[in-house]
Design a protein around this nucleic acid. Structure first.
Length: 314
DNA sequence: AACAATATCAACCGCAAAAAT
DNA sequence: TATTTTTGCGGTTGATATTGT
Protein backbone atom coordinates (compact mmCIF):
# COMPACT_ATOMS: atom_id res chain seq x y z
CA UNK A 1 0.00 0.00 0.00
CA UNK A 2 1.77 3.00 1.17
CA UNK A 3 1.06 5.48 -1.49
CA UNK A 4 -0.25 4.90 -4.89
CA UNK A 5 2.59 5.17 -7.29
CA UNK A 6 1.27 8.31 -8.77
CA UNK A 7 4.36 9.21 -10.68
CA UNK A 8 5.87 5.81 -10.91
CA UNK A 9 3.53 4.58 -13.50
CA UNK A 10 5.20 3.72 -16.68
CA UNK A 11 4.94 6.11 -19.52
CA UNK A 12 4.67 9.15 -17.37
CA UNK A 13 6.50 11.96 -18.96
CA UNK A 14 8.80 14.14 -16.96
CA UNK A 15 10.70 17.27 -17.57
CA UNK A 16 9.72 20.63 -18.92
CA UNK A 17 6.27 21.13 -20.26
CA UNK A 18 5.79 21.76 -23.91
CA UNK A 19 3.44 24.36 -25.29
CA UNK A 20 1.22 21.60 -26.57
CA UNK A 21 0.89 20.13 -23.14
CA UNK A 22 0.20 23.50 -21.66
CA UNK A 23 -2.46 24.01 -24.19
CA UNK A 24 -4.08 20.73 -23.43
CA UNK A 25 -4.01 21.41 -19.76
CA UNK A 26 -5.41 24.89 -20.06
CA UNK A 27 -8.09 23.65 -22.36
CA UNK A 28 -9.06 21.03 -19.89
CA UNK A 29 -9.12 23.36 -16.96
CA UNK A 30 -11.09 25.76 -18.99
CA UNK A 31 -13.71 23.15 -19.54
CA UNK A 32 -13.74 21.46 -16.20
CA UNK A 33 -12.25 23.87 -13.81
CA UNK A 34 -9.23 23.29 -11.67
CA UNK A 35 -9.40 20.38 -9.35
CA UNK A 36 -9.90 16.70 -9.74
CA UNK A 37 -6.37 16.49 -10.93
CA UNK A 38 -6.49 12.80 -10.77
CA UNK A 39 -8.71 12.79 -13.77
CA UNK A 40 -6.68 15.20 -15.81
CA UNK A 41 -4.15 12.82 -17.30
CA UNK A 42 -6.85 10.32 -18.05
CA UNK A 43 -9.19 12.74 -19.66
CA UNK A 44 -6.67 14.72 -21.58
CA UNK A 45 -4.30 12.05 -22.63
CA UNK A 46 -1.47 13.95 -21.10
CA UNK A 47 1.32 11.66 -20.17
CA UNK A 48 1.80 13.47 -16.94
CA UNK A 49 0.93 12.55 -13.44
CA UNK A 50 -1.79 14.44 -11.68
CA UNK A 51 0.69 16.11 -9.45
CA UNK A 52 2.60 17.44 -12.33
CA UNK A 53 -0.55 18.81 -13.91
CA UNK A 54 -1.60 20.51 -10.73
CA UNK A 55 1.81 21.96 -10.24
CA UNK A 56 1.99 23.26 -13.74
CA UNK A 57 -1.37 24.88 -13.44
CA UNK A 58 -0.81 26.27 -10.00
CA UNK A 59 2.59 27.68 -10.62
CA UNK A 60 2.50 28.79 -14.20
CA UNK A 61 -0.77 28.58 -16.01
CA UNK A 62 -3.14 29.71 -13.36
CA UNK A 63 -4.63 33.12 -13.97
CA UNK A 64 -3.36 36.05 -12.07
CA UNK A 65 0.19 35.02 -11.66
CA UNK A 66 2.77 37.69 -11.77
CA UNK A 67 6.19 36.65 -12.80
CA UNK A 68 9.55 38.19 -12.81
CA UNK A 69 11.01 40.90 -10.73
CA UNK A 70 9.93 41.12 -7.19
CA UNK A 71 9.34 44.62 -6.03
CA UNK A 72 11.07 45.98 -3.04
CA UNK A 73 7.84 45.86 -1.14
CA UNK A 74 7.25 42.27 -1.99
CA UNK A 75 10.76 41.53 -0.98
CA UNK A 76 10.34 43.11 2.37
CA UNK A 77 7.08 41.41 2.94
CA UNK A 78 8.58 38.06 2.16
CA UNK A 79 11.47 38.62 4.46
CA UNK A 80 9.20 39.69 7.19
CA UNK A 81 6.75 36.89 6.77
CA UNK A 82 9.52 34.39 6.54
CA UNK A 83 10.82 35.62 9.83
CA UNK A 84 7.41 35.11 11.31
CA UNK A 85 6.25 31.98 9.63
CA UNK A 86 9.42 30.24 8.74
CA UNK A 87 9.56 28.35 5.51
CA UNK A 88 5.86 28.04 5.17
CA UNK A 89 5.85 29.23 1.64
CA UNK A 90 2.25 28.55 0.96
CA UNK A 91 1.25 30.64 3.90
CA UNK A 92 3.57 33.38 2.81
CA UNK A 93 2.27 33.16 -0.70
CA UNK A 94 -1.22 33.70 0.54
CA UNK A 95 -0.22 37.24 1.29
CA UNK A 96 1.19 37.72 -2.14
CA UNK A 97 -1.68 36.50 -4.23
CA UNK A 98 0.07 37.12 -7.47
CA UNK A 99 3.03 35.03 -6.52
CA UNK A 100 3.27 31.32 -6.17
CA UNK A 101 4.83 29.60 -3.26
CA UNK A 102 7.34 28.03 -5.56
CA UNK A 103 8.30 31.40 -6.88
CA UNK A 104 8.66 32.84 -3.45
CA UNK A 105 10.59 29.87 -2.28
CA UNK A 106 12.95 30.17 -5.19
CA UNK A 107 13.34 33.85 -4.68
CA UNK A 108 14.10 33.34 -1.07
CA UNK A 109 16.63 30.65 -1.71
CA UNK A 110 18.38 32.45 -4.50
CA UNK A 111 18.14 36.09 -3.59
CA UNK A 112 16.95 36.84 -0.15
CA UNK A 113 18.73 34.23 1.83
CA UNK A 114 21.94 35.27 0.24
CA UNK A 115 21.20 38.87 0.74
CA UNK A 116 20.43 38.40 4.36
CA UNK A 117 23.38 36.25 5.12
CA UNK A 118 25.65 38.62 3.33
CA UNK A 119 24.32 41.48 5.29
CA UNK A 120 24.56 39.50 8.45
CA UNK A 121 28.09 38.56 7.72
CA UNK A 122 28.98 42.05 6.74
CA UNK A 123 30.12 42.76 10.21
CA UNK A 124 32.02 39.57 10.46
CA UNK A 125 34.33 38.06 7.96
CA UNK A 126 32.04 38.25 5.01
CA UNK A 127 32.65 36.34 1.88
CA UNK A 128 30.03 33.69 1.69
CA UNK A 129 30.90 31.87 -1.41
CA UNK A 130 28.55 29.86 -3.46
CA UNK A 131 25.91 29.07 -1.03
CA UNK A 132 22.93 28.68 -3.19
CA UNK A 133 21.02 25.52 -3.29
CA UNK A 134 21.86 22.58 -5.39
CA UNK A 135 23.07 24.30 -8.46
CA UNK A 136 24.43 21.13 -9.77
CA UNK A 137 26.43 20.96 -12.85
CA UNK A 138 26.39 17.29 -13.42
CA UNK A 139 24.74 16.09 -16.50
CA UNK A 140 21.35 14.71 -15.88
CA UNK A 141 18.81 12.71 -17.67
CA UNK A 142 15.88 15.00 -17.96
CA UNK A 143 15.67 17.82 -20.40
CA UNK A 144 13.99 15.66 -22.88
CA UNK A 145 12.33 18.72 -24.16
CA UNK A 146 15.42 20.58 -24.87
CA UNK A 147 16.19 17.73 -27.13
CA UNK A 148 12.82 17.86 -28.63
CA UNK A 149 13.70 21.22 -29.94
CA UNK A 150 10.52 22.75 -28.72
CA UNK A 151 12.17 24.55 -25.92
CA UNK A 152 13.08 27.16 -28.42
CA UNK A 153 10.37 29.46 -27.24
CA UNK A 154 11.53 31.83 -24.58
CA UNK A 155 10.61 30.73 -21.17
CA UNK A 156 7.36 32.04 -19.99
CA UNK A 157 6.19 32.96 -23.39
CA UNK A 158 3.66 30.24 -23.61
CA UNK A 159 2.41 30.70 -20.14
CA UNK A 160 1.83 34.29 -20.92
CA UNK A 161 0.10 33.53 -24.11
CA UNK A 162 -2.05 30.93 -22.59
CA UNK A 163 -2.95 33.16 -19.76
CA UNK A 164 -3.89 35.83 -22.14
CA UNK A 165 -6.07 34.06 -24.54
CA UNK A 166 -6.31 30.42 -25.10
CA UNK A 167 -7.78 30.71 -28.53
CA UNK A 168 -5.04 32.87 -29.77
CA UNK A 169 -2.56 30.66 -28.11
CA UNK A 170 -3.90 27.70 -29.94
CA UNK A 171 -3.68 29.47 -33.19
CA UNK A 172 -0.20 30.63 -32.46
CA UNK A 173 0.77 27.15 -31.54
CA UNK A 174 -0.54 25.77 -34.74
CA UNK A 175 1.32 28.37 -36.66
CA UNK A 176 4.45 27.77 -34.72
CA UNK A 177 4.27 24.09 -35.30
CA UNK A 178 3.62 24.58 -38.93
CA UNK A 179 6.48 26.97 -39.29
CA UNK A 180 8.99 25.19 -37.21
CA UNK A 181 10.65 22.60 -39.35
CA UNK A 182 12.82 21.42 -36.54
CA UNK A 183 9.88 20.70 -34.39
CA UNK A 184 9.04 17.07 -34.27
CA UNK A 185 5.48 16.13 -34.69
CA UNK A 186 3.68 16.93 -31.53
CA UNK A 187 3.28 13.86 -29.51
CA UNK A 188 0.29 15.30 -27.88
CA UNK A 189 -2.65 16.76 -29.46
CA UNK A 190 -4.25 19.75 -28.04
CA UNK A 191 -7.35 17.73 -28.07
CA UNK A 192 -7.83 15.64 -31.11
CA UNK A 193 -8.62 18.64 -33.13
CA UNK A 194 -9.05 21.81 -31.30
CA UNK A 195 -12.71 22.01 -31.66
CA UNK A 196 -13.37 25.61 -31.09
CA UNK A 197 -14.22 25.84 -27.52
CA UNK A 198 -16.93 28.15 -26.51
CA UNK A 199 -15.16 30.59 -24.38
CA UNK A 200 -17.82 32.35 -22.44
CA UNK A 201 -16.42 35.79 -22.42
CA UNK A 202 -13.55 36.06 -24.75
CA UNK A 203 -11.86 39.28 -24.06
CA UNK A 204 -11.47 41.98 -26.53
CA UNK A 205 -8.05 40.72 -27.31
CA UNK A 206 -9.31 37.45 -28.59
CA UNK A 207 -8.25 36.72 -32.06
CA UNK A 208 -5.59 39.29 -32.29
CA UNK A 209 -2.29 37.61 -32.33
CA UNK A 210 -0.37 40.77 -31.94
CA UNK A 211 -2.50 41.92 -29.14
CA UNK A 212 -2.17 39.07 -26.77
CA UNK A 213 1.52 38.90 -26.73
CA UNK A 214 1.82 42.28 -25.23
CA UNK A 215 -1.36 42.43 -23.36
CA UNK A 216 -1.14 42.36 -19.66
CA UNK A 217 -4.51 40.85 -19.42
CA UNK A 218 -4.51 37.37 -18.22
CA UNK A 219 -6.80 34.53 -18.60
CA UNK A 220 -8.55 35.42 -15.44
CA UNK A 221 -10.65 38.05 -17.03
CA UNK A 222 -11.17 36.12 -20.16
CA UNK A 223 -12.36 33.17 -18.29
CA UNK A 224 -14.43 35.00 -15.81
CA UNK A 225 -17.49 33.21 -16.92
CA UNK A 226 -16.38 29.69 -16.50
CA UNK A 227 -14.64 29.82 -13.23
CA UNK A 228 -16.54 31.06 -10.32
CA UNK A 229 -15.33 31.81 -6.89
CA UNK A 230 -17.65 29.27 -5.52
CA UNK A 231 -15.95 26.63 -7.55
CA UNK A 232 -19.09 25.63 -9.27
CA UNK A 233 -17.47 23.76 -12.04
CA UNK A 234 -14.50 22.64 -10.19
CA UNK A 235 -16.33 21.16 -7.30
CA UNK A 236 -12.88 20.64 -6.09
CA UNK A 237 -11.62 20.01 -2.69
CA UNK A 238 -12.16 23.16 -0.84
CA UNK A 239 -9.84 25.00 1.36
CA UNK A 240 -7.67 22.84 3.32
CA UNK A 241 -4.29 24.18 2.87
CA UNK A 242 -2.40 25.49 5.75
CA UNK A 243 -2.34 28.73 3.95
CA UNK A 244 -6.04 28.81 4.12
CA UNK A 245 -5.85 28.08 7.73
CA UNK A 246 -3.70 31.05 8.27
CA UNK A 247 -5.53 33.48 6.17
CA UNK A 248 -8.89 31.91 6.09
CA UNK A 249 -10.09 33.55 9.18
CA UNK A 250 -9.68 37.03 7.97
CA UNK A 251 -10.73 36.45 4.46
CA UNK A 252 -14.12 37.55 5.48
CA UNK A 253 -15.64 37.07 2.14
CA UNK A 254 -17.66 33.99 1.87
CA UNK A 255 -16.14 31.65 -0.56
CA UNK A 256 -12.54 32.41 -0.88
CA UNK A 257 -9.87 33.94 1.13
CA UNK A 258 -6.65 35.30 -0.04
CA UNK A 259 -5.34 31.88 -0.43
CA UNK A 260 -3.11 31.58 -3.37
CA UNK A 261 -3.16 27.89 -3.28
CA UNK A 262 -6.38 26.11 -3.60
CA UNK A 263 -7.98 25.78 -6.94
CA UNK A 264 -10.69 28.00 -5.71
CA UNK A 265 -8.11 30.36 -4.54
CA UNK A 266 -6.72 30.48 -7.95
CA UNK A 267 -10.10 30.80 -9.34
CA UNK A 268 -10.66 33.45 -6.86
CA UNK A 269 -7.82 35.29 -8.29
CA UNK A 270 -9.75 35.48 -11.41
CA UNK A 271 -11.85 37.96 -9.64
CA UNK A 272 -8.92 39.41 -7.91
CA UNK A 273 -8.25 42.77 -9.28
CA UNK A 274 -5.26 44.50 -7.94
CA UNK A 275 -7.19 46.13 -5.22
CA UNK A 276 -8.66 43.08 -3.64
CA UNK A 277 -5.56 41.06 -3.89
CA UNK A 278 -5.07 39.71 -0.47
CA UNK A 279 -6.22 40.78 2.87
CA UNK A 280 -5.98 44.35 3.81
CA UNK A 281 -2.81 45.37 5.42
CA UNK A 282 -4.52 46.43 8.54
CA UNK A 283 -5.64 42.88 8.86
CA UNK A 284 -2.19 41.70 8.19
CA UNK A 285 -0.85 44.00 10.76
CA UNK A 286 -3.18 42.87 13.41
CA UNK A 287 -2.40 39.32 12.60
CA UNK A 288 1.26 39.96 12.69
CA UNK A 289 0.93 41.72 15.96
CA UNK A 290 -1.09 38.88 17.30
CA UNK A 291 1.75 36.72 16.46
CA UNK A 292 3.50 38.11 19.39
CA UNK A 293 6.35 39.62 17.59
CA UNK A 294 5.53 43.06 18.70
CA UNK A 295 6.60 44.45 15.46
CA UNK A 296 5.18 46.82 13.04
CA UNK A 297 4.46 49.09 15.91
CA UNK A 298 1.52 50.86 14.78
CA UNK A 299 1.96 53.32 12.09
CA UNK A 300 4.06 51.69 9.54
CA UNK A 301 2.14 49.54 7.17
CA UNK A 302 3.49 46.19 6.36
CA UNK A 303 4.86 47.20 3.11
CA UNK A 304 6.53 50.40 3.65
CA UNK A 305 7.54 49.72 7.05
CA UNK A 306 10.31 49.67 9.40
CA UNK A 307 10.14 46.05 10.11
CA UNK A 308 11.63 43.68 12.45
CA UNK A 309 15.21 42.69 12.31
CA UNK A 310 15.39 41.04 8.94
CA UNK A 311 14.67 44.19 7.13
CA UNK A 312 17.40 46.10 8.67
CA UNK A 313 19.54 44.32 6.25
CA UNK A 314 18.01 46.16 3.39
C1' DA B 1 36.21 33.66 -28.52
C1' DA B 2 36.15 29.83 -25.57
C1' DC B 3 35.73 27.88 -21.23
C1' DA B 4 34.42 27.75 -16.41
C1' DA B 5 31.85 29.10 -12.62
C1' DT B 6 27.76 30.82 -10.71
C1' DA B 7 22.93 32.09 -10.60
C1' DT B 8 18.27 31.28 -11.64
C1' DC B 9 14.21 28.77 -12.17
C1' DA B 10 11.14 24.90 -13.47
C1' DA B 11 10.07 20.55 -12.08
C1' DC B 12 10.34 16.29 -9.22
C1' DC B 13 10.11 13.66 -4.94
C1' DG B 14 8.52 12.20 -0.60
C1' DC B 15 5.76 13.17 3.23
C1' DA B 16 1.74 14.67 5.63
C1' DA B 17 -2.89 16.18 5.99
C1' DA B 18 -7.53 16.09 4.51
C1' DA B 19 -11.32 14.05 2.17
C1' DA B 20 -13.77 10.21 0.57
C1' DT B 21 -15.36 5.62 1.01
C1' DT C 1 -14.18 4.22 12.86
C1' DA C 2 -10.75 2.59 9.93
C1' DT C 3 -8.78 2.49 5.57
C1' DT C 4 -7.83 4.25 1.11
C1' DT C 5 -7.28 7.93 -2.10
C1' DT C 6 -6.24 12.53 -3.40
C1' DT C 7 -4.29 16.90 -2.78
C1' DG C 8 -1.00 20.17 -1.02
C1' DC C 9 3.48 21.49 0.88
C1' DG C 10 8.35 22.00 1.40
C1' DG C 11 12.88 20.48 0.18
C1' DT C 12 15.82 19.34 -3.41
C1' DT C 13 17.56 18.47 -7.98
C1' DG C 14 18.96 19.41 -12.58
C1' DA C 15 18.93 22.16 -16.90
C1' DT C 16 19.59 26.49 -18.80
C1' DA C 17 21.12 31.25 -18.77
C1' DT C 18 24.26 34.60 -17.44
C1' DT C 19 28.57 36.43 -15.96
C1' DG C 20 33.41 36.31 -15.24
C1' DT C 21 38.12 34.83 -16.50
Amino acid sequence: MGRPPCCDKGGVKKGPWTPEEDLVLVSYVQDHGPGNWRAVPTNTGLMRCSKSCRLRWTNYLRPGIKRGNFTDQEERLIVHLQALLGNRWAAIASYLPERTDNDIKNYWNTHLKKKLSKAAAAGAAGGGGGSGSGSGSSAGSAGADAKSGRAAAPKGQWERRLQTDIHTARQALREALALDPAAPAPSLRAKPEPEPEPLPAPGPAAGKAAAYASSAENIARLLEGWMRPGGTKASGSASRSSASAVSGGEGGSASHSATARTPEGSTGTSNCKAEDAGPSFSMLESWLLDDGMGIGHGDAGLMGMPLADPCQFF
